[in-house]
Simulated scan of single mutants.
Amino acid sequence: MIKILVIDDDCQMLELICDALEQSGYYVEGESNPLLVDSKRCQQYDLLLLDVMMPVEDGFSLCTRIRDSVDCPILFLTAKTEETALIKGFGLGADDYIKKPFSIGELRARVNAHLRREDRQPNHAMTRGGVRFNMHAKEAVVGETAILLTKSEYAISEYLALHAGQVFTKDQLYEAIFGYDAEGEPSAIAEHIKNIRGKLKTVGLNPIETVWGVGYKWQKENAR
């Protein structure tokens, strides 16, 4: 289920937005204190709604604090008089804004539109099946434990996790990871998968599923 986090210090507005989006079928959480929101928490959600004008920490500051570690869309909630500051917001990494006052229909339409076109791949980090991939550092972490994957094992794991739920043959994985011109055998993928599973088993995880007669997939129900 798609998860949305709404951050607004106005509790009545917060309740209104959460109720409206829940009626659209989303799982929605509200937070009135932006200081309780960090990048780790935000990585659990598919979309963030941030009020701009909050006394403890404004939406611009919060966006700056979390954007480098969060890949999902960020939408600002802003009053009409703040429109001149929107350029600043986009520069900080916001994807869109919704002017206050807004109708419930507009709110739902904007949120739905961003979620529909949110097919971009994560650039910084993602969590799939309990495994956090730090994509710049090329490292996999479970909780506080680093999973010591080889370069090839990491590449296979990241590729499968990025496409959670999609089945790939050994040939498809080999070409995606090593290229069409690489020297080697696609059968090596099976050995890599075996090693990955062994390392993840030590932390109680088994997200890679064998689809007999076809190939492998990262279990979609574990993706977030």
Rank of each mutant, 00 (worst) to 15 (best):
I2H: 09
I2D: 11
I2P: 10
D10A: 10
D10G: 07
Q12R: 07
M13K: 08
L14W: 04
E15S: 11
L16H: 13
A20I: 10
A20Y: 07
A20W: 07
S24K: 13
S24F: 11
G25D: 02
Y26S: 09
Y26E: 09
E29I: 05
S32Y: 13
S32P: 14
S32G: 05
N33A: 11
N33F: 12
P34Y: 00
L36T: 09
L36A: 15
K40V: 15
Q43C: 08
Q44K: 15
Y45A: 04
D46N: 02
D46F: 00
L49K: 00
L50C: 08
M54Q: 04
E57P: 08
E57I: 12
C63N: 00
C63S: 08
C63V: 03
I66E: 02
I66W: 01
R67I: 07
D68G: 13
V70Y: 04
C72E: 00
I74K: 01
E83W: 12
L86A: 03
I87S: 14
K88F: 09
G89D: 03
F90E: 09
F90D: 06
G91I: 10
G91N: 15
G93Y: 00
D96Q: 04
D96Y: 07
Y97S: 02
K99M: 14
I104T: 02
G105M: 05
E106R: 06
R108V: 14
A109Q: 07
N112D: 13
A113L: 12
H114W: 13
R116G: 02
D119Y: 08
R120T: 11
N123K: 15
H124Y: 11
A125I: 04
A125F: 07
M126C: 07
F133N: 04
H136G: 12
H136I: 09
K138P: 04
E139L: 12
A140V: 09
E144D: 09
I147M: 02
I147L: 08
S152E: 11
S152R: 10
E153R: 05
I156M: 07
L160I: 06
L160W: 04
A161G: 12
L162F: 07
L162Y: 01
A164V: 03
G165E: 05
Q166F: 08
K170F: 00
D171R: 15
L173G: 05
Y174H: 13
A176G: 09
A176E: 14
A176H: 14
I177Q: 08
I177E: 01
F178V: 07
D181F: 15
E183K: 15
P186E: 05
S187P: 06
A188G: 14
I189V: 10
K194C: 15
K194T: 13
K199M: 02
K201L: 05
V203P: 00
G204N: 06
G204V: 02
N206V: 08
N206Q: 15
P207F: 03
I208Q: 01
T210L: 14
V211W: 12
G213P: 09
G213W: 03
V214E: 10
W218N: 01
W218H: 10
Q219L: 02
Q219K: 15
Q219A: 12
K220Q: 08
N222S: 07
N222A: 03
R224M: 10
